[in-house]
Amino acid sequence: MQDLFFYLFAFLTLLCGLLVVANPFSRNPVTSAMFLVLTIVSLAGLFVLLHAFFLAAVQILVYAGAVIVLFLFVIMLLDLKGEQRRKANRFSLVTGVISVGAITVIFIKTIFESHATATDTTPVLEGATQPLGRMLFNDYVLPFEILSVLLLVAMVGVILLSKKDLR
């Protein structure tokens, strides 16, 4: 049953990811953003299958809730028309596909050559909220605090960047 769900979510993730980058029907950025939402949601499904419940919730809240809304805001703000199909540069297309395909082959071969990564294939971990929070506030307090400063810096930077008279 779980395996069935894994294949379902994996298929959905890859299909929607493909539709984000190369949609044959529409070049509109809004369509890409919508398929990005679907990708995120099916990735959250994979997280649930990996028993990372808290991260699945955070994934949906932060990505589908905040990041995509930000993307849609900017797309609407800039009023981008769908890219008109200009003649694609054949050279860059071919070289890009070849190099990415080569990297894919390297990745897949590496994964299947290295059996040492998972010594026991029986999953043991439960990624519930409580142990995660305990770990976050015991072992990782300093990064957590630095992260809060980083968020503040990002906020200040965004406000500064989006001022009208940017010098």
């Binding site: 990996l50 010594t119 770990m135 990064p143 968020l151």
Partner: peptide
Amino acid sequence: LVAFSRFNGHLDGQVMVFFIITVAAAEVAV
């Protein structure tokens, strides 16, 4: 990262993912 954390029995990977999500949100805004 989540897959490694699940199959190796450490929670550190998930904490890392939590940080990555936060940094990604800040990065998207900027």
